[in-house]
Design a protein around this nucleic acid. Structure first.
Lengths: 351, 351
DNA sequence: CCACTGTACGTAATCGTTTACCTCTGAACG
DNA sequence: CGTTCAGAGGTAAACGATTACGTACAGTGG
């Protein structure tokens, strides 16, 4: 493969001149520039980014650790981060941890070895302690979705309290008083905030908190399904369910359907995250959207600020506003649901 | 950051010895090895992969070009490829082309500049001509999902003919004679093969091919929805729909629901790809699964064979067997659908 | 005519590894 | 005792860029 030396030789100039033509880092006469460009063309010269990286100690590469890119929420994050990175000239090394702590540690090592310029991390298990070696080596890190303490570690998160509050309030506004909640793993800050939002909305409307209406899942459809089943088995089952993410909401809808009940007529369902899919479920799913493109841009900018030493010394946390999206899964009396309601009352009559 | 020289100095040996300890490339006495390992430990030495790459002209990096990782099928591919790559010690640079030809070309340039060791490519637009520069530079390429002609370009694809044949046959076996088909963009080889499979199944069962029952989509739910609407508007609408992917099948189910019809009682639906989500739709969606983990492993092995010059000169194409998965969206008379059938006959009576 | 300035470009060290060649030492052997 | 050989490990030249310095030359002002 042609090197900068080959180009220099063919153009009859030094490698310095070629490099400066390439990067626009110093004035080059038109004559010389043209000869260099011609030589590049002729040799199909493609600069070696590896050599460049070694010399300038910057790889224009960012590591992205996500639990599993097959989960739509993370896929969206990966996509938006990639776009944001590209805009700044960076590439993304994708790391699926598969929820494994060991795997995460392996990735951290690998990314350090590869001398990534920064890291974006979505992880439940890693803490500031594990990230310390990166920071010591001057590789900045931004947490996404989950906040972590620790100086110099920035985070971007959604306002979980407000999101849960909005979702619950919406259900209350629709006339529901018994609202089930399918939570995530309970020890995380995210879960604590969302539960607080849920309780706040209930309290403001004089609805007593009922422990029985809370069950926990792991963000996958099957646990949404089993959780909803459990809720529907209660002597006084809920008329609405708020799930901590859309996938569990999907499972909940499945459970409701399997019971021969209807969404939203018998049980309303609302999710969280706002993955694209929610538009296309039957019925379309209400949800609390996380504005991932915006969050990704913010994340990337924070990271770039650190990479370019433009950031303040202290860690920053940006909290982003969630957006409530109301669809048929919580809204009564659309054409379809009306028709269904009449069916279901017939059903009742027949039983 | 500590370098190999620092380690050598601290251990009182040469950099050659440190390197050989690191890579196990020649015998080192126990005494020296221990001193080196100790020094590494003490300095928190982490070898610089960039420098190594420059020296050995290998980056242990593979480029992956996909249209959009937010589409579940591609997300699964990305995940499985990443696992396969990791097993062989490679990392993945993720490239979302967003279906843009320009973007794809940009990525090709960037990946060459980064000196990736190989490329896995899912693209409708790129052809052998665009890949030629990579091959000339000795960067092997494997096509996934879409075959391309050209020496030295390997491909891994599903047996599209057989998949479509199986899907159609399954619907026929369930008693359907009018089977709608929502196809992809018609010029691709994939589409041609699937249509042939569909027609073959019809023909074998004495069902005339009806042009009216074919409409085309772009693999997104909205076109599945509009396609299905169009089919349902026919004077003699289909009783079953075969969509070229699961996302369009999802849209088709939505259209059917919006009509107040039921899946599968009024119209059966089957998709293609076998994305995880199909298990959790209402009702669960029948589909023709592409065994992506297996296909990814094959793809990666083909690529590694080329990288290590272990491959024959000619291009190879591996055609993988699809797996039919039958779920409630095509199977009648489950407990739930029975109940629904009685409802829908009531409905008819009431109209 | 000299000193100075600005323009254009070249020289060569450097980034952190790997690895082809050497060198050294001590043991074995005839 | 000289030769050979194996074992252990060192030296230094790459890999392909960037960039701090240096140099040559033309123009300008005093």
């Amino acid at each position: 493969m042609a090197t900068i030396r080959d180009v220099a030789q063919l153009a009859g100039v030094s490698t310095a001149t070629v490099s400066h033509v390439l990067n626009g880092t110093r004035v080059v006469s038109d004559v010389a520039r043209d000869r260099v460009l011609e030589a590049m063309e002729e040799l199909h010269y493609q600069p070696n980014a590896v050599a460049r990286s070694l010399r300038v100690s910057a790889t224009l590469t960012i590591g992205l650790i996500v639990p599993d890119v097959e989960i739509p929420f993370f896929a969206r994050v990966a996509h938006c981060m990639e776009i944001a990175a590209n805009e700044a000239g960076y590439s993304i090394i994708l790391c699926n941890s598969d929820w494994s702590f060991k795997q995460e540690l392996r990735y951290l090592d690998n990314l350090v070895a590869r001398r990534v310029d920064g890291l974006i991390c979505i992880s439940l298990l890693l803490t500031a302690e594990h990230i310390a070696p990166l920071l010591k080596r001057n590789i900045p890190v931004v947490w996404f979705e989950q906040k972590r303490s620790g100086r110099l570690i920035d985070s971007v998160i959604i306002d979980n309290f407000k999101g849960a509050y909005q979702a619950t309030l919406h259900l209350i506004t629709q006339g529901h008083r018994r609202i089930g909640c399918i939570t995530g793993l309970s020890h995380s800050l995210l879960s604590i905030d969302r539960l607080a939002g849920y309780r706040q909305a209930l309290q403001e409307h004089g609805i007593a908190f009922d422990e029985q209406l809370i069950c926990s899942g792991d963000y996958t459809p099957p646990t949404g399904l089993s959780g909803a089943k459990q809720l529907l088995n209660l002597s006084e089952p809920p008329t609405a369910i708020f799930a901590y993410n859309d996938m569990m909401a999907l499972g909940a809808m499945q459970a409701i359907n399997e019971r021969g009940l209807r969404v939203p007529d018998d049980v309303a369902v609302i999710g969280f995250d706002g993955i694209a899919l929610t538009e296309h479920t039957c019925p379309p799913l209400s949800t609390v959207e996380q504005p991932i493109p915006e969050m990704s841009k913010i994340t990337m900018n924070m990271l770039l600020d650190r990479i370019n030493n433009r950031a303040p010394y202290e860690s920053r946390t940006v909290v982003v506003e969630p957006h409530l999206i109301c669809r048929s899964s919580t809204l009564g009396f659309t054409a379809t649901t009306q028709q269904r309601r009449s069916n279901s009352s017939l059903e009742v009559a027949l039983v």
